[in-house]
Nucleic acid binder design. Structure first.
Ligand code: FES
Ligand code: FES
Lengths: 159, 159
DNA sequence: GCTAAACCTTACTTTAAAGTCAACTTTCAA
DNA sequence: TTGAAAGTTGACTTTAAAGTAAGGTTTAGC
């Protein structure tokens, strides 16, 4: 259970764009790459993925660059992760079938619900966090996340 | 955010042992491998990891085999995952540093709390599930997991 | 319209994880 | 005591993800 490099760096780059967009600016690939310490080529690949998914927009030409497609407060982390993950969210059992296919095709499996539930929990937790919330200091972000967690539980309790 | 093959197959093999132990039996490598559709060598590797971590015990010799070190009801999934994950739980930012080390060494980072919180949420969710709970039918397991989720929220609410 | 800056796209190379193989050691039972 | 079953270990091979490179396409400005 870990976060891939694409998810990690993609999210970081998005945060850079979020910061820039607060000042109404756009960032070129070279700027993004320099600020995150990755190669220009790699930044280009990440931006291509994010652009294709509609999370960022690009302006070509001599005064071009990248900027967020929507305000940072309207971009939720679960969308970001899903995009950077290559949409492989629902392919667990298909890929880890081994030689036998007993586990895949036999309807009754005790592990599948665990996997499904786990992804729901993660997705649910991430859906409450927006890019704009991550622009604060680490201490404040941490406090905000805990606050969200508690609030969430209360609202679910009422439901 | 995905589950590695080691985690998936390791958990499956543990479930096989849990089933066998209910009948007071132990399983050989060949039996485990056949039941999960993986190679004997791979099963051996997984069992070695689980044995080293103290989750299973092995009996050598002609009547040997593997069995759970503890009752299935006392083995929680978060322990299993942590073992199979190679204890890499707290190495996120160290590995994804890129060329610059700004993100790693600069105290203030908005992403780190997200990663930490996420892992806590996952670990927390898994800690409520035991191996014995996964031996039921898929429908029952699914129902049980939802039940746990709700119960958990209530108890946290009181705290 | 030219030109240079900047993004777009595909293909290739590198690298780390997963899986396999083969030789070794231990144990039990005849 | 001896041999076969079974686990242990480390090295090797395979494979998929990550990263890189190069050429193509679009746009702003002159
Ligand atoms: S159906 Fe996929 S692990 Fe059982
Ligand atoms: S410190 Fe690791 S992502 Fe910022």
């Amino acid at each position: 259970m870990k976060i891939s490099a694409q998810e990690e760096f993609g999210l970081r780059c998005l945060l850079q764009l979020a910061r820039a967009s607060a000042a109404g600016e756009s960032l070129t690939l070279a700027q993004i790459a320099e600020r995150e310490g990755i190669s220009v080529a790699n930044a280009g690949k990440l931006m291509w993925i994010l652009n294709k998914a509609g999370l960022v927009r690009s302006q070509r030409g001599i005064k071009g660059g990248y900027y967020l497609a929507r305000p940072a407060s309207e971009i939720h982390l679960n969308q970001v992760i899903r995009v950077l993950d290559g949409e492989r969210v629902d392919s667990h059992c298909k890929s880890y079938a081994g030689v036998l296919d007993a586990c895949v095709h036999t309807g009754d499996c005790g592990i599948r619900p665990v996997i499904v539930e786990l992804h729901q929990i993660v997705d649910n937790a991430l859906s409450d966090i927006t890019l704009s919330q991550l622009l604060d200091t680490e201490a404040n972000v941490d406090a905000a996340l805990h606050q969200i967690h508690i609030t969430k539980q209360r609202s679910e309790q009422r439901a």
